[in-house]
C-alpha cells in the first residue's frame, strides 16, 4: 500500500507493507524516532499506530539543540 509523507519541505509517496506501523516507517525512511514527531492532520500519532492506505503523514524534526 501507499502513504504520503511530508518531511523537511518535501512531499513523497512511500510504498509500505500492510500493517506497517509509524515507527517502522520512520526506520525505513532513516529517521531516528527520538528526533522527530509524526502528525496526521492536526493530531500527533504514536509509533505503534498502524498505517492505512492513502494516509498523509507529516514528519517534524523537533530536536534543535546541539
Amino acid at each position: 500500500m501507499k502513504v504520503r509523507v511530508k518531511a523537511e519541505g518535501r512531499e513523497r509517496e512511500v510504498e509500505v507493507a500492510e500493517g506497517t506501523t509509524v515507527g517502522r516507517l520512520l526506520e525505513e525512511l532513516g529517521y531516528d524516532r527520538e528526533s522527530v514527531l509524526v502528525r496526521k492532520g492536526k493530531k500527533l500519532v504514536v509509533e505503534e499506530e498502524r498505517l492505512s492506505e492513502g494516509e498523509e503523514l507529516e514528519v517534524l524534526r523537533v530536536v534543535t539543540g546541539g
Binding site: L37, L60, V62, V63
Partner: peptide
Amino acid sequence: PEREVAAYALL
C-alpha cells in the same frame, strides 16, 4: 525529554 516538550508545544 526534549521530544515531549516539543509535543506539548504542538498540542
